[in-house]
């Protein structure tokens, strides 16, 4: 064991200098004993991936702007390229942020993709294709994706139920938009909302108890 004359303390762990006063210490290394292991700094490969990915996204935006202004200065196409890259970046970022819970991830992606498609639709002439096709499609796809994931991961009711309900609920939006009159092509919206309605009814009918406890849990004030 080592000893510091100034602090008058015995030092159990191995140090070159006194851990309290940084002064010179006496004693041999013999008899010293660590109480914590040496722990190496962890490297998270995900961080580097995300840095690279972000850099590539920015680079694509900048390069397309450069090409645009050098070769086709009369056409302003680079804004579309940049907007596209931003959309891809946002989707990936959300996906990475919520990577630990795939069902939650799916809900987020559904919302993000919906808003992105509204945006693109609005800036490309507002033909309402986002409401006609995109919204019903992602509504059905999300529900199916969730069912598959919860089967593969063998999730328990308390892990999937709330997301099933949210996804089912979001799937009812197309019929609302149809009713308001935004939707022009009717059959995708009818298909999606009908499917989701049945899905929700099924949950209520066959899993009533679980649905209710889950709602109570999630909404307790």
């Amino acid at each position: 064991m080592k000893y510091c004359e100034k602090c008058k303390v015995k030092i159990r762990t191995n140090h070159e200098k006194c851990p309290l006063c940084q002064g010179v210490i006496q004693g041999e290394k013999e008899g010293t004993e660590e109480i914590f292991p040496e722990i190496k700094e962890k490297n998270y490969p995900g961080v580097l991936f995300f840095q690279c990915f972000t850099f590539v996204c920015i680079a694509v935006g900048v390069v397309s702007a450069m090409i645009n202004y050098i070769f086709t200065p009369s056409l302003q196409w680079c804004f579309y390229a940049i907007a596209g890259v931003i959309c891809i970046w946002v989707c990936t970022a959300v996906g990475l942020l919520k990577r630990r819970n795939l069902l939650k991830n799916a809900i987020w992606q559904e919302i993000v993709i919906a808003f992105i498609s509204f945006g693109w639709d609005a800036f490309t002439g507002w033909h309402k294709w986002s409401f006609d096709y995109v919204l019903p499609c992602i509504g059905i796809v999300t529900v199916l994706f969730m069912i598959v994931i919860s089967m593969i991961q063998k999730l328990k009711p308390q892990e999937y139920m709330i997301y099933f309900m949210i996804a089912g609920g979001l799937g009812l939006l197309p019929i609302v938009f149809l009713w308001i009159g935004i939707v022009k092509v009717e059959y995708p919206s009818i298909l999606c909302s009908g499917f989701c309605f049945l899905f929700l009814i099924g949950l209520l009918l066959f899993r009533y108890h679980i649905v209710m406890t889950e709602l109570h849990k999630k909404f307790h004030i």
């Binding site: 602090c7 015995k10 030092i11 159990r12």
Partner: peptide, 11 residues
């Protein structure tokens, strides 16, 4: 330690 109490430090 100034009071004469023995102390053993680990860090």
């Amino acid at each position: 330690t100034g009071l004469g109490i023995e102390v053993e430090i680990s860090t």
